[in-house]
Design a protein around this nucleic acid. Structure first.
Length: 554
RNA sequence: AGUCCGAUGGUGUAAUGGUAACACUACAGAUUUUGAUUCUGUCAUUCUAGGUUCGAACCCUGGUCGGACUACCA
Protein backbone atom coordinates (compact mmCIF):
# COMPACT_ATOMS: atom_id res chain seq x y z
CA UNK A 1 0.00 0.00 0.00
CA UNK A 2 2.52 2.57 1.07
CA UNK A 3 5.19 2.50 -1.59
CA UNK A 4 8.68 3.90 -1.45
CA UNK A 5 7.34 7.38 -1.92
CA UNK A 6 7.03 9.18 1.38
CA UNK A 7 3.62 9.91 2.77
CA UNK A 8 2.01 13.29 3.10
CA UNK A 9 0.56 14.19 6.46
CA UNK A 10 -2.95 13.10 5.51
CA UNK A 11 -1.74 9.73 4.32
CA UNK A 12 0.09 9.34 7.60
CA UNK A 13 -3.07 10.04 9.54
CA UNK A 14 -5.04 7.61 7.44
CA UNK A 15 -2.44 4.86 7.66
CA UNK A 16 -2.19 5.24 11.39
CA UNK A 17 -6.00 5.09 11.64
CA UNK A 18 -6.04 1.96 9.52
CA UNK A 19 -3.29 0.43 11.66
CA UNK A 20 -5.25 1.26 14.80
CA UNK A 21 -8.39 -0.27 13.36
CA UNK A 22 -10.35 2.98 13.49
CA UNK A 23 -13.67 2.37 11.67
CA UNK A 24 -12.37 -1.12 10.95
CA UNK A 25 -9.87 0.38 8.57
CA UNK A 26 -12.59 1.87 6.38
CA UNK A 27 -11.73 5.08 4.47
CA UNK A 28 -14.51 7.28 3.15
CA UNK A 29 -13.92 10.84 1.95
CA UNK A 30 -16.05 13.38 0.19
CA UNK A 31 -15.70 16.33 -2.17
CA UNK A 32 -18.24 18.93 -1.02
CA UNK A 33 -18.57 21.90 -3.39
CA UNK A 34 -21.23 24.54 -3.00
CA UNK A 35 -23.01 24.73 -6.36
CA UNK A 36 -22.61 28.47 -6.71
CA UNK A 37 -19.87 28.71 -9.33
CA UNK A 38 -17.55 26.84 -11.58
CA UNK A 39 -14.75 24.65 -10.29
CA UNK A 40 -11.19 25.95 -10.53
CA UNK A 41 -7.63 24.72 -10.10
CA UNK A 42 -7.98 24.83 -6.32
CA UNK A 43 -10.98 22.52 -6.47
CA UNK A 44 -9.01 20.29 -8.81
CA UNK A 45 -6.41 19.74 -6.14
CA UNK A 46 -9.10 19.06 -3.54
CA UNK A 47 -10.75 16.60 -5.93
CA UNK A 48 -7.46 14.82 -6.58
CA UNK A 49 -6.82 14.68 -2.86
CA UNK A 50 -10.19 13.35 -1.77
CA UNK A 51 -10.74 10.94 -4.62
CA UNK A 52 -7.07 10.01 -4.69
CA UNK A 53 -6.93 9.16 -1.00
CA UNK A 54 -10.08 7.07 -1.26
CA UNK A 55 -8.66 5.20 -4.21
CA UNK A 56 -5.28 4.66 -2.61
CA UNK A 57 -6.79 3.15 0.51
CA UNK A 58 -9.53 1.14 -1.22
CA UNK A 59 -12.15 3.48 0.11
CA UNK A 60 -14.94 5.56 -1.31
CA UNK A 61 -15.44 9.21 -2.09
CA UNK A 62 -18.81 10.94 -2.25
CA UNK A 63 -19.68 13.94 -4.33
CA UNK A 64 -21.78 16.06 -2.03
CA UNK A 65 -23.25 19.39 -2.93
CA UNK A 66 -23.22 21.73 0.02
CA UNK A 67 -26.44 23.44 -0.96
CA UNK A 68 -27.62 25.08 2.22
CA UNK A 69 -27.87 28.61 0.87
CA UNK A 70 -30.73 28.78 -1.62
CA UNK A 71 -30.03 32.33 -2.71
CA UNK A 72 -26.71 31.60 -4.39
CA UNK A 73 -27.08 28.11 -5.76
CA UNK A 74 -28.22 26.89 -9.13
CA UNK A 75 -28.65 23.64 -11.03
CA UNK A 76 -26.44 24.94 -13.84
CA UNK A 77 -23.52 24.82 -11.44
CA UNK A 78 -24.39 21.32 -10.26
CA UNK A 79 -24.19 20.08 -13.84
CA UNK A 80 -20.90 21.82 -14.59
CA UNK A 81 -19.35 20.49 -11.39
CA UNK A 82 -20.33 16.94 -12.24
CA UNK A 83 -18.91 17.32 -15.73
CA UNK A 84 -15.64 18.70 -14.37
CA UNK A 85 -15.15 15.93 -11.82
CA UNK A 86 -15.82 13.33 -14.50
CA UNK A 87 -13.47 15.01 -16.91
CA UNK A 88 -10.75 14.89 -14.30
CA UNK A 89 -11.25 11.16 -14.35
CA UNK A 90 -12.90 10.43 -11.03
CA UNK A 91 -16.01 8.48 -10.12
CA UNK A 92 -17.97 9.26 -7.01
CA UNK A 93 -19.47 6.55 -4.88
CA UNK A 94 -22.64 8.56 -4.25
CA UNK A 95 -24.06 11.78 -5.57
CA UNK A 96 -25.52 13.50 -2.56
CA UNK A 97 -26.89 16.84 -1.46
CA UNK A 98 -26.89 18.49 1.94
CA UNK A 99 -30.46 19.45 1.09
CA UNK A 100 -31.32 15.74 1.20
CA UNK A 101 -30.73 15.99 4.93
CA UNK A 102 -32.85 19.05 5.71
CA UNK A 103 -35.45 17.04 7.64
CA UNK A 104 -32.80 15.15 9.60
CA UNK A 105 -30.92 18.38 10.27
CA UNK A 106 -34.12 19.95 11.55
CA UNK A 107 -34.55 17.02 13.93
CA UNK A 108 -30.96 17.43 15.08
CA UNK A 109 -31.70 21.05 15.90
CA UNK A 110 -34.78 20.10 17.88
CA UNK A 111 -32.65 17.60 19.76
CA UNK A 112 -30.25 20.38 20.69
CA UNK A 113 -33.11 22.55 21.88
CA UNK A 114 -34.36 19.66 23.98
CA UNK A 115 -30.99 19.41 25.63
CA UNK A 116 -31.08 23.11 26.40
CA UNK A 117 -28.21 23.70 23.99
CA UNK A 118 -29.95 25.91 21.46
CA UNK A 119 -32.27 28.88 21.63
CA UNK A 120 -34.25 31.20 19.45
CA UNK A 121 -32.83 34.70 19.32
CA UNK A 122 -34.88 37.71 18.20
CA UNK A 123 -31.93 40.11 18.23
CA UNK A 124 -31.17 42.09 15.09
CA UNK A 125 -27.96 41.40 13.19
CA UNK A 126 -26.47 44.59 14.58
CA UNK A 127 -27.34 43.65 18.13
CA UNK A 128 -25.85 40.24 17.67
CA UNK A 129 -22.67 41.64 16.21
CA UNK A 130 -22.38 43.94 19.18
CA UNK A 131 -22.94 41.07 21.61
CA UNK A 132 -20.35 38.99 19.87
CA UNK A 133 -17.46 40.97 21.28
CA UNK A 134 -14.23 41.17 19.41
CA UNK A 135 -10.88 39.50 18.98
CA UNK A 136 -9.46 39.55 22.46
CA UNK A 137 -12.66 40.96 23.91
CA UNK A 138 -15.30 38.62 25.34
CA UNK A 139 -18.89 38.78 24.14
CA UNK A 140 -22.02 39.23 26.20
CA UNK A 141 -25.04 36.99 26.38
CA UNK A 142 -28.15 37.71 24.42
CA UNK A 143 -31.30 38.84 26.18
CA UNK A 144 -33.03 35.77 24.70
CA UNK A 145 -30.43 33.26 25.74
CA UNK A 146 -32.39 31.75 28.58
CA UNK A 147 -35.74 31.18 26.93
CA UNK A 148 -37.43 27.99 28.05
CA UNK A 149 -37.05 24.80 26.11
CA UNK A 150 -40.75 24.52 25.27
CA UNK A 151 -40.90 28.10 24.07
CA UNK A 152 -37.83 27.55 21.93
CA UNK A 153 -39.34 24.45 20.42
CA UNK A 154 -42.59 26.22 19.62
CA UNK A 155 -40.78 29.21 18.15
CA UNK A 156 -38.57 26.97 16.02
CA UNK A 157 -41.63 25.13 14.72
CA UNK A 158 -43.20 28.49 13.92
CA UNK A 159 -40.08 29.54 12.08
CA UNK A 160 -40.32 26.43 9.96
CA UNK A 161 -44.01 27.03 9.42
CA UNK A 162 -43.22 30.37 7.88
CA UNK A 163 -44.71 32.60 10.57
CA UNK A 164 -41.82 35.04 10.49
CA UNK A 165 -40.16 37.13 7.82
CA UNK A 166 -36.51 36.77 6.85
CA UNK A 167 -34.18 37.87 9.60
CA UNK A 168 -36.80 38.05 12.33
CA UNK A 169 -35.36 35.21 14.35
CA UNK A 170 -32.50 32.74 14.32
CA UNK A 171 -31.67 29.54 16.12
CA UNK A 172 -28.37 29.70 17.98
CA UNK A 173 -26.32 27.07 19.72
CA UNK A 174 -25.80 27.84 23.39
CA UNK A 175 -22.07 27.46 23.98
CA UNK A 176 -19.96 30.22 25.49
CA UNK A 177 -20.10 33.94 24.74
CA UNK A 178 -16.65 34.44 26.22
CA UNK A 179 -14.90 31.72 24.28
CA UNK A 180 -11.64 32.90 22.68
CA UNK A 181 -12.75 31.22 19.46
CA UNK A 182 -15.36 33.60 18.11
CA UNK A 183 -17.13 30.78 16.30
CA UNK A 184 -18.07 29.23 19.61
CA UNK A 185 -19.80 32.37 20.89
CA UNK A 186 -23.31 31.02 20.36
CA UNK A 187 -23.12 30.55 16.60
CA UNK A 188 -26.24 30.86 14.49
CA UNK A 189 -27.29 27.46 13.23
CA UNK A 190 -30.57 28.20 11.44
CA UNK A 191 -31.80 31.28 9.66
CA UNK A 192 -35.04 32.24 7.95
CA UNK A 193 -34.87 32.57 4.17
CA UNK A 194 -38.03 32.65 2.15
CA UNK A 195 -36.18 31.68 -0.98
CA UNK A 196 -36.63 29.09 -3.69
CA UNK A 197 -34.14 26.25 -3.40
CA UNK A 198 -32.84 24.62 -6.55
CA UNK A 199 -33.82 21.18 -5.27
CA UNK A 200 -36.27 21.50 -2.39
CA UNK A 201 -38.23 24.29 -4.05
CA UNK A 202 -40.41 26.15 -1.54
CA UNK A 203 -40.61 23.33 0.92
CA UNK A 204 -38.42 25.12 3.44
CA UNK A 205 -38.11 28.68 4.64
CA UNK A 206 -35.44 27.98 7.23
CA UNK A 207 -32.00 26.77 6.24
CA UNK A 208 -29.12 25.41 8.31
CA UNK A 209 -25.82 27.27 8.38
CA UNK A 210 -22.62 25.65 7.12
CA UNK A 211 -21.51 24.68 10.61
CA UNK A 212 -24.76 22.93 11.35
CA UNK A 213 -24.84 21.11 8.04
CA UNK A 214 -21.37 20.07 7.06
CA UNK A 215 -20.26 17.95 9.97
CA UNK A 216 -23.66 16.34 10.33
CA UNK A 217 -23.73 15.53 6.63
CA UNK A 218 -20.31 13.94 6.98
CA UNK A 219 -21.62 11.98 9.91
CA UNK A 220 -24.78 10.85 8.14
CA UNK A 221 -22.65 9.60 5.27
CA UNK A 222 -20.22 7.96 7.72
CA UNK A 223 -17.36 9.93 6.27
CA UNK A 224 -14.20 8.89 8.06
CA UNK A 225 -11.82 11.65 6.94
CA UNK A 226 -13.35 15.02 6.18
CA UNK A 227 -10.66 17.03 4.47
CA UNK A 228 -10.92 20.76 4.03
CA UNK A 229 -8.76 23.83 3.71
CA UNK A 230 -6.99 25.59 6.53
CA UNK A 231 -9.45 28.44 6.93
CA UNK A 232 -11.89 25.95 8.45
CA UNK A 233 -9.54 25.01 11.20
CA UNK A 234 -11.37 27.28 13.64
CA UNK A 235 -14.55 25.46 12.80
CA UNK A 236 -13.25 22.11 13.95
CA UNK A 237 -14.15 22.56 17.63
CA UNK A 238 -17.67 23.38 16.54
CA UNK A 239 -17.70 20.44 14.14
CA UNK A 240 -16.73 18.16 17.00
CA UNK A 241 -19.09 19.83 19.46
CA UNK A 242 -22.19 19.17 17.37
CA UNK A 243 -21.19 15.58 16.71
CA UNK A 244 -20.61 15.04 20.40
CA UNK A 245 -23.83 16.70 21.60
CA UNK A 246 -25.86 14.87 18.97
CA UNK A 247 -24.04 11.65 19.72
CA UNK A 248 -23.73 10.71 16.05
CA UNK A 249 -21.08 9.00 13.94
CA UNK A 250 -17.74 10.67 14.71
CA UNK A 251 -16.39 11.96 11.42
CA UNK A 252 -13.16 13.88 11.81
CA UNK A 253 -12.01 16.99 10.06
CA UNK A 254 -8.46 17.55 8.81
CA UNK A 255 -7.17 20.70 7.23
CA UNK A 256 -4.57 21.36 4.54
CA UNK A 257 -3.26 24.59 3.04
CA UNK A 258 -4.95 25.55 -0.20
CA UNK A 259 -2.50 25.59 -3.06
CA UNK A 260 -2.26 28.88 -4.89
CA UNK A 261 -0.77 29.00 -8.34
CA UNK A 262 1.09 32.02 -9.64
CA UNK A 263 -0.75 34.24 -12.13
CA UNK A 264 -4.03 32.59 -11.20
CA UNK A 265 -6.84 33.66 -8.92
CA UNK A 266 -9.26 31.29 -7.27
CA UNK A 267 -11.66 33.58 -5.52
CA UNK A 268 -15.13 32.85 -6.85
CA UNK A 269 -16.10 36.46 -6.38
CA UNK A 270 -13.18 37.68 -8.47
CA UNK A 271 -13.66 35.02 -11.10
CA UNK A 272 -17.27 36.08 -11.38
CA UNK A 273 -16.16 39.67 -11.88
CA UNK A 274 -13.86 38.66 -14.71
CA UNK A 275 -16.78 37.00 -16.43
CA UNK A 276 -19.43 39.63 -15.71
CA UNK A 277 -17.24 42.54 -16.67
CA UNK A 278 -16.14 40.83 -19.86
CA UNK A 279 -12.46 40.67 -19.10
CA UNK A 280 -12.80 37.13 -20.40
CA UNK A 281 -15.35 35.53 -22.68
CA UNK A 282 -16.90 33.27 -20.06
CA UNK A 283 -16.24 30.66 -17.40
CA UNK A 284 -14.54 28.44 -19.94
CA UNK A 285 -12.36 31.14 -21.47
CA UNK A 286 -9.00 29.43 -22.05
CA UNK A 287 -7.32 32.02 -19.83
CA UNK A 288 -9.51 31.16 -16.84
CA UNK A 289 -8.11 29.02 -14.01
CA UNK A 290 -11.36 27.09 -14.06
CA UNK A 291 -11.38 23.41 -14.89
CA UNK A 292 -13.57 24.16 -17.89
CA UNK A 293 -11.15 26.89 -18.96
CA UNK A 294 -8.15 24.60 -18.70
CA UNK A 295 -10.04 21.92 -20.61
CA UNK A 296 -10.83 24.35 -23.42
CA UNK A 297 -7.26 25.57 -23.37
CA UNK A 298 -6.19 22.02 -24.12
CA UNK A 299 -4.71 21.01 -20.78
CA UNK A 300 -5.06 17.23 -20.53
CA UNK A 301 -6.83 15.92 -17.43
CA UNK A 302 -3.80 13.74 -16.80
CA UNK A 303 -1.63 16.85 -16.67
CA UNK A 304 -3.86 18.47 -14.08
CA UNK A 305 -3.79 15.29 -12.02
CA UNK A 306 -0.03 15.03 -12.35
CA UNK A 307 0.30 18.64 -11.25
CA UNK A 308 -1.84 18.13 -8.15
CA UNK A 309 0.16 15.06 -7.31
CA UNK A 310 3.47 16.80 -7.88
CA UNK A 311 2.85 19.85 -5.70
CA UNK A 312 1.87 17.69 -2.76
CA UNK A 313 -0.05 18.77 0.27
CA UNK A 314 0.98 20.44 3.49
CA UNK A 315 -0.14 23.04 5.99
CA UNK A 316 2.00 26.00 5.07
CA UNK A 317 1.20 28.83 2.73
CA UNK A 318 2.47 28.47 -0.76
CA UNK A 319 2.50 29.95 -4.23
CA UNK A 320 3.22 27.28 -6.75
CA UNK A 321 4.93 28.42 -9.93
CA UNK A 322 2.55 28.08 -12.86
CA UNK A 323 5.56 26.73 -14.73
CA UNK A 324 5.08 23.45 -12.91
CA UNK A 325 1.58 23.12 -14.34
CA UNK A 326 2.89 23.98 -17.79
CA UNK A 327 5.63 21.42 -17.41
CA UNK A 328 3.00 18.76 -16.69
CA UNK A 329 0.95 19.86 -19.69
CA UNK A 330 3.98 19.61 -21.99
CA UNK A 331 5.00 16.28 -20.57
CA UNK A 332 1.59 14.75 -21.21
CA UNK A 333 1.14 16.31 -24.62
CA UNK A 334 4.65 15.38 -25.71
CA UNK A 335 3.64 11.76 -25.42
CA UNK A 336 0.28 12.04 -27.14
CA UNK A 337 -0.04 15.05 -29.45
CA UNK A 338 0.48 14.52 -33.16
CA UNK A 339 3.07 16.74 -34.75
CA UNK A 340 1.83 18.90 -37.59
CA UNK A 341 3.16 21.94 -39.40
CA UNK A 342 1.58 25.34 -39.09
CA UNK A 343 3.07 28.66 -40.06
CA UNK A 344 1.89 31.38 -37.74
CA UNK A 345 3.46 34.34 -39.48
CA UNK A 346 4.04 33.32 -43.10
CA UNK A 347 6.48 34.54 -45.67
CA UNK A 348 6.50 32.99 -49.12
CA UNK A 349 9.44 31.12 -50.57
CA UNK A 350 9.86 30.07 -54.17
CA UNK A 351 12.10 27.20 -55.08
CA UNK A 352 13.39 28.54 -58.34
CA UNK A 353 14.89 25.25 -59.48
CA UNK A 354 11.79 23.20 -58.65
CA UNK A 355 9.58 22.48 -61.62
CA UNK A 356 6.41 24.57 -61.68
CA UNK A 357 3.25 22.50 -61.45
CA UNK A 358 4.98 19.54 -59.89
CA UNK A 359 3.72 18.15 -56.56
CA UNK A 360 5.34 15.52 -54.41
CA UNK A 361 3.84 13.67 -51.51
CA UNK A 362 6.15 13.29 -48.58
CA UNK A 363 5.89 11.02 -45.59
CA UNK A 364 5.75 12.61 -42.13
CA UNK A 365 5.74 10.84 -38.76
CA UNK A 366 2.87 11.84 -36.53
CA UNK A 367 4.87 11.53 -33.35
CA UNK A 368 8.30 9.99 -33.00
CA UNK A 369 7.69 9.66 -29.24
CA UNK A 370 4.89 7.24 -30.01
CA UNK A 371 5.64 4.60 -32.61
CA UNK A 372 2.04 3.54 -32.86
CA UNK A 373 1.02 6.99 -34.04
CA UNK A 374 1.88 6.24 -37.66
CA UNK A 375 2.59 8.58 -40.52
CA UNK A 376 0.71 10.86 -42.86
CA UNK A 377 1.30 12.30 -46.29
CA UNK A 378 2.06 15.97 -46.88
CA UNK A 379 2.33 17.74 -50.19
CA UNK A 380 5.33 19.70 -51.43
CA UNK A 381 5.72 21.97 -54.41
CA UNK A 382 7.49 25.03 -55.81
CA UNK A 383 5.83 27.63 -53.63
CA UNK A 384 5.82 27.30 -49.90
CA UNK A 385 5.45 29.38 -46.77
CA UNK A 386 7.85 29.45 -43.88
CA UNK A 387 7.86 31.34 -40.61
CA UNK A 388 8.95 34.95 -41.01
CA UNK A 389 11.05 34.60 -37.86
CA UNK A 390 12.97 31.77 -39.46
CA UNK A 391 14.61 34.16 -41.90
CA UNK A 392 17.00 36.96 -41.08
CA UNK A 393 18.73 39.15 -43.58
CA UNK A 394 21.60 39.82 -41.27
CA UNK A 395 21.72 36.85 -38.94
CA UNK A 396 23.66 36.91 -35.69
CA UNK A 397 26.18 34.21 -34.96
CA UNK A 398 24.72 30.79 -34.23
CA UNK A 399 21.56 31.49 -36.21
CA UNK A 400 20.74 28.04 -37.54
CA UNK A 401 17.91 29.13 -39.79
CA UNK A 402 17.50 30.73 -43.19
CA UNK A 403 19.49 33.75 -44.33
CA UNK A 404 21.00 34.89 -47.61
CA UNK A 405 23.42 32.22 -48.86
CA UNK A 406 22.64 29.99 -45.89
CA UNK A 407 20.99 26.58 -45.98
CA UNK A 408 18.40 24.88 -43.82
CA UNK A 409 16.40 21.73 -44.08
CA UNK A 410 12.68 21.91 -44.57
CA UNK A 411 11.30 19.35 -42.15
CA UNK A 412 10.38 16.08 -43.85
CA UNK A 413 11.60 17.54 -47.19
CA UNK A 414 14.71 19.02 -48.76
CA UNK A 415 17.62 21.25 -47.92
CA UNK A 416 17.22 24.69 -49.41
CA UNK A 417 19.53 27.66 -49.85
CA UNK A 418 18.41 31.24 -50.03
CA UNK A 419 19.60 33.17 -53.10
CA UNK A 420 17.52 36.26 -53.31
CA UNK A 421 15.36 38.45 -51.09
CA UNK A 422 12.43 40.20 -52.77
CA UNK A 423 11.04 43.32 -51.12
CA UNK A 424 8.19 45.71 -51.75
CA UNK A 425 8.53 49.48 -52.09
CA UNK A 426 8.55 49.88 -48.30
CA UNK A 427 11.36 47.44 -47.86
CA UNK A 428 9.22 44.63 -46.46
CA UNK A 429 10.26 41.16 -47.48
CA UNK A 430 7.63 39.65 -49.74
CA UNK A 431 9.33 36.58 -51.13
CA UNK A 432 12.47 34.57 -50.74
CA UNK A 433 13.92 32.84 -53.74
CA UNK A 434 15.71 29.64 -52.91
CA UNK A 435 17.31 26.61 -54.50
CA UNK A 436 16.47 23.15 -53.29
CA UNK A 437 18.91 20.28 -53.34
CA UNK A 438 17.23 17.31 -55.13
CA UNK A 439 19.59 14.83 -53.49
CA UNK A 440 18.70 15.83 -49.97
CA UNK A 441 15.22 14.36 -49.71
CA UNK A 442 14.34 13.42 -46.16
CA UNK A 443 14.96 9.77 -45.40
CA UNK A 444 16.77 9.38 -48.71
CA UNK A 445 19.54 11.94 -48.44
CA UNK A 446 22.52 11.30 -50.66
CA UNK A 447 23.71 14.90 -50.77
CA UNK A 448 26.25 14.51 -48.01
CA UNK A 449 25.41 17.99 -46.84
CA UNK A 450 24.85 18.55 -43.17
CA UNK A 451 22.84 21.50 -42.00
CA UNK A 452 22.27 22.51 -38.43
CA UNK A 453 18.82 23.99 -38.83
CA UNK A 454 15.49 22.39 -39.60
CA UNK A 455 12.42 24.54 -40.09
CA UNK A 456 8.74 23.91 -40.63
CA UNK A 457 6.72 25.02 -43.65
CA UNK A 458 3.42 24.59 -45.45
CA UNK A 459 2.65 24.10 -49.12
CA UNK A 460 1.19 27.29 -50.61
CA UNK A 461 -1.05 25.27 -52.91
CA UNK A 462 -3.09 23.57 -50.24
CA UNK A 463 -2.33 25.23 -46.91
CA UNK A 464 -5.45 26.11 -44.97
CA UNK A 465 -5.98 29.53 -43.40
CA UNK A 466 -6.72 29.34 -39.69
CA UNK A 467 -7.31 31.57 -36.73
CA UNK A 468 -4.88 30.94 -33.92
CA UNK A 469 -5.59 32.37 -30.51
CA UNK A 470 -2.39 32.98 -28.59
CA UNK A 471 -2.56 33.37 -24.82
CA UNK A 472 -0.35 35.12 -22.35
CA UNK A 473 -0.74 35.30 -18.60
CA UNK A 474 -4.00 36.91 -17.55
CA UNK A 475 -2.22 38.99 -14.94
CA UNK A 476 0.94 41.05 -14.91
CA UNK A 477 1.88 40.04 -11.38
CA UNK A 478 2.47 36.56 -10.04
CA UNK A 479 0.17 36.92 -7.05
CA UNK A 480 -2.73 39.10 -8.21
CA UNK A 481 -4.91 38.13 -5.25
CA UNK A 482 -2.42 39.63 -2.80
CA UNK A 483 -0.90 42.35 -4.92
CA UNK A 484 -1.40 45.92 -3.96
CA UNK A 485 -4.57 47.60 -5.17
CA UNK A 486 -7.55 45.99 -6.83
CA UNK A 487 -6.76 42.75 -8.62
CA UNK A 488 -8.26 44.13 -11.80
CA UNK A 489 -5.51 46.72 -12.03
CA UNK A 490 -3.19 43.82 -12.74
CA UNK A 491 -5.09 42.33 -15.65
CA UNK A 492 -2.69 42.05 -18.57
CA UNK A 493 -3.71 44.10 -21.61
CA UNK A 494 -2.67 41.49 -24.15
CA UNK A 495 -3.61 38.20 -22.58
CA UNK A 496 -5.16 37.06 -25.84
CA UNK A 497 -3.82 37.80 -29.31
CA UNK A 498 -5.85 36.66 -32.27
CA UNK A 499 -3.87 35.72 -35.32
CA UNK A 500 -5.88 35.40 -38.52
CA UNK A 501 -2.89 35.05 -40.79
CA UNK A 502 -1.85 31.54 -39.86
CA UNK A 503 -1.60 28.79 -42.46
CA UNK A 504 -1.83 25.17 -41.40
CA UNK A 505 -1.19 21.96 -43.26
CA UNK A 506 -4.09 20.47 -45.13
CA UNK A 507 -4.51 17.44 -42.84
CA UNK A 508 -5.83 19.75 -40.12
CA UNK A 509 -8.99 20.28 -42.11
CA UNK A 510 -10.33 17.09 -40.53
CA UNK A 511 -9.43 18.00 -36.96
CA UNK A 512 -12.24 17.80 -34.47
CA UNK A 513 -13.09 20.04 -31.55
CA UNK A 514 -10.77 19.50 -28.61
CA UNK A 515 -8.19 17.61 -30.64
CA UNK A 516 -4.64 18.41 -29.59
CA UNK A 517 -1.59 18.92 -31.77
CA UNK A 518 1.95 20.04 -31.58
CA UNK A 519 2.60 22.72 -34.15
CA UNK A 520 6.22 21.76 -34.68
CA UNK A 521 8.70 24.17 -33.16
CA UNK A 522 5.84 26.39 -31.97
CA UNK A 523 3.91 24.72 -29.20
CA UNK A 524 0.82 22.74 -28.39
CA UNK A 525 -2.50 23.80 -29.81
CA UNK A 526 -6.01 22.44 -29.71
CA UNK A 527 -9.09 22.90 -31.82
CA UNK A 528 -11.46 25.32 -30.16
CA UNK A 529 -15.11 24.44 -29.76
CA UNK A 530 -15.98 27.43 -31.98
CA UNK A 531 -13.93 26.00 -34.83
CA UNK A 532 -15.73 24.89 -38.00
CA UNK A 533 -14.91 23.69 -41.49
CA UNK A 534 -15.49 27.24 -42.66
CA UNK A 535 -13.18 28.78 -40.09
CA UNK A 536 -10.57 26.69 -38.34
CA UNK A 537 -9.80 28.00 -34.87
CA UNK A 538 -6.96 26.84 -32.65
CA UNK A 539 -6.11 27.70 -29.07
CA UNK A 540 -2.52 27.85 -27.99
CA UNK A 541 -2.30 25.46 -25.06
CA UNK A 542 1.30 26.13 -24.14
CA UNK A 543 4.48 26.98 -26.01
CA UNK A 544 7.44 24.69 -26.38
CA UNK A 545 10.47 25.35 -24.25
CA UNK A 546 12.47 27.88 -26.22
CA UNK A 547 16.15 27.98 -25.37
CA UNK A 548 16.95 29.90 -28.53
CA UNK A 549 14.64 32.78 -27.64
CA UNK A 550 16.28 32.93 -24.24
CA UNK A 551 19.69 32.97 -25.88
CA UNK A 552 18.66 35.83 -28.18
CA UNK A 553 17.51 37.94 -25.25
CA UNK A 554 20.99 37.93 -23.77
C1' A B 1 -5.07 42.58 21.96
C1' G B 2 -6.97 36.90 22.33
C1' U B 3 -6.99 32.01 20.05
C1' C B 4 -5.20 28.88 16.37
C1' C B 5 -1.87 27.53 12.22
C1' G B 6 2.81 27.77 9.95
C1' A B 7 8.44 28.74 8.96
C1' U B 8 13.73 23.57 4.95
C1' G B 9 17.37 26.18 -1.86
C1' G B 10 14.27 30.87 -6.71
C1' U B 11 9.53 27.40 -6.25
C1' G B 12 6.78 23.07 -4.29
C1' U B 13 7.43 18.91 -1.31
C1' A B 14 10.81 14.96 1.62
C1' A B 15 13.95 13.49 5.59
C1' U B 16 9.60 11.53 11.92
C1' G B 17 16.84 11.81 16.91
C1' G B 18 22.00 9.34 12.96
C1' U B 19 24.60 14.13 9.44
C1' A B 20 19.56 17.56 4.13
C1' A B 21 16.43 14.02 -0.66
C1' C B 22 13.04 14.42 -5.03
C1' A B 23 10.76 17.47 -8.72
C1' C B 24 10.24 22.25 -11.25
C1' U B 25 13.16 26.52 -12.53
C1' A B 26 18.06 28.41 -13.65
C1' C B 27 22.95 27.52 -15.48
C1' A B 28 26.70 24.32 -18.14
C1' G B 29 27.46 20.22 -21.47
C1' A B 30 26.09 15.70 -24.79
C1' U B 31 22.60 13.68 -28.40
C1' U B 32 18.95 15.39 -31.94
C1' U B 33 15.96 16.09 -39.40
C1' U B 34 11.49 20.11 -33.77
C1' G B 35 17.19 25.41 -30.81
C1' A B 36 11.53 20.34 -28.73
C1' U B 37 12.22 15.57 -26.50
C1' U B 38 16.12 12.58 -24.12
C1' C B 39 20.73 12.28 -21.20
C1' U B 40 24.71 14.26 -17.80
C1' G B 41 26.48 17.81 -14.40
C1' U B 42 26.12 22.40 -11.04
C1' C B 43 23.12 25.27 -7.35
C1' A B 44 20.86 24.89 1.01
C1' U B 45 25.34 24.72 7.26
C1' U B 46 16.88 23.90 7.50
C1' C B 47 13.87 32.00 10.59
C1' U B 48 16.58 33.15 15.32
C1' A B 49 18.69 32.56 20.46
C1' G B 50 19.24 29.20 24.12
C1' G B 51 18.43 24.14 26.12
C1' U B 52 18.18 18.46 26.13
C1' U B 53 21.48 14.72 23.64
C1' C B 54 27.34 11.24 21.90
C1' G B 55 24.33 13.33 17.94
C1' A B 56 18.78 18.06 16.46
C1' A B 57 15.59 20.28 10.29
C1' C B 58 13.18 16.95 13.84
C1' C B 59 12.36 17.26 21.02
C1' C B 60 11.90 21.67 24.89
C1' U B 61 11.85 27.17 26.03
C1' G B 62 11.99 32.31 24.48
C1' G B 63 11.96 35.54 20.37
C1' U B 64 11.10 37.05 15.17
C1' C B 65 8.35 36.81 10.83
C1' G B 66 3.96 35.25 7.92
C1' G B 67 -1.17 33.72 7.84
C1' A B 68 -6.27 32.64 9.59
C1' C B 69 -10.56 33.97 12.72
C1' U B 70 -14.95 39.11 14.75
C1' A B 71 -21.01 37.02 7.49
C1' C B 72 -28.43 35.38 9.27
C1' C B 73 -21.68 32.88 3.10
C1' A B 74 -19.41 28.20 2.35
Amino acid sequence: MSEDKSLNFLEEIIESDIAAGVNNGRVHTRFPPEPNGYLHIGHASSICLNFGLAKKYNGLCNLRFDDTNPSTEETEYVESIKADVKWLGFEWANELYASDYFEQLYLFAVQLIDKGLAYIDDSTPDEMAAQKGDIGKPGVESFYRNRGIEENKQLFADMRAGKYPDGAKVLRAKIDMEHPNLLLRDPIIYRIKHAHHHRTGDQWCIYPMYDFAHGQSDSIEQITHSICTLEFIHHRPLYDWFIEQLNIFPSHQYEFARRSVSYMITSKRKLLQLVNENHVSGWDDPRMPTISGMRRRGYPAAAVRQFCDMIGVAKRENLVDIGVLEFCVREQLNKTAHRVMAVLNPVKIILTNYEAGRTENLVADNNTEDESSGTRSISFSRELYIERDDFMEEPPKKFFRLAPRLSVRLKHAYIITCNEVIKDADGNITELHCNYNPDSKSGNDTSGIHVKGVIHWVNAADAVPAQVRMYNRLFTVDDPANAEGDFKEHIAPNSMEINNAALVEKSLLNATSGEQFQFMRKGYFCVDRESSSVQLIFNQTVGLKDTFAKEMKK
